[in-house]
Design a protein around this nucleic acid. Sequence first.
DNA 1: GCTTGACTTCGAGTGCGCTCGAACTGGAAC
DNA 2: GTTCCAGTTCGAGCGCACTCGAAGTCAAGC
Lengths: 120, 120
Amino acid sequence: MTVSEAAERVGLTTYTLRWYEQEGLVEPVDRDSAGRRRYSDQDVDWLVLLTRLRRTGMPVRDMRRYAELARQGDRTLGERRALFEAHRDRVLARISELEEDLKVLNYKIDIYGKMERELL
Amino acid sequence: MTVSEAAERVGLTTYTLRWYEQEGLVEPVDRDSAGRRRYSDQDVDWLVLLTRLRRTGMPVRDMRRYAELARQGDRTLGERRALFEAHRDRVLARISELEEDLKVLNYKIDIYGKMERELL
DNA sequence: GCTTGACTTCGAGTGCGCTCGAACTGGAAC
DNA sequence: GTTCCAGTTCGAGCGCACTCGAAGTCAAGC
């Protein structure tokens, strides 16, 4: 599929897709006879995984590192697993943090509600 | 307390504290005779609340809006509550998203573990 | 009374992750 | 066969949230 079709599927722009390739997050994508990118389903799967990593706050730098490891094949499985485990821990910590902050938010909402009722 | 003491307490830099003031996230802080900022406990409380909002991903733009409302007193309580409720919903959505992404992470970790064992 | 060091303001610089404009190319539709 | 459109590369620009350098001021300690 074309760059714009792939962009549509993964929810990124064509700009971003080309930039990801340039940044080494994606292997050079196959081209047709006219030099236009042709994305395979595997390319899209990979991009979807990358969007998950980005969404969880993984820096592009780390995603590049992960992409490099993936390119090197099975011998980097352990390292890739370690990278994901470390990231999982960060995501868990982030969720805890958000849940803590949620308490403050709820407390404030409650207080504002009470103050509003007192003003009547 | 001084700007560096306040920075220490809220976990921001002195640069950021001055910048927050300049950006209107904080009311102009009291000054001593030499023109140096003197932070009160209430100033610090306010800053701590701001850090919670930032940490949950609220843009500085929205924090400024909130600060403006707070400055206007009780008549903006309803609007402030609405702002917090909307933000709470975003935080809840973000947590759900992270939990979804966590599943992918765990799935990958599991797969890598299995592949590693198969290679032995 | 001089040094030190934490403060002041101002504007410029940084890092991240895109986002875009310009100039060009090549296949498809009429 | 010309128009059109989606693609190409390249480098520049942007928005956000800080972060810092420079030049100056002032109170406190020796």
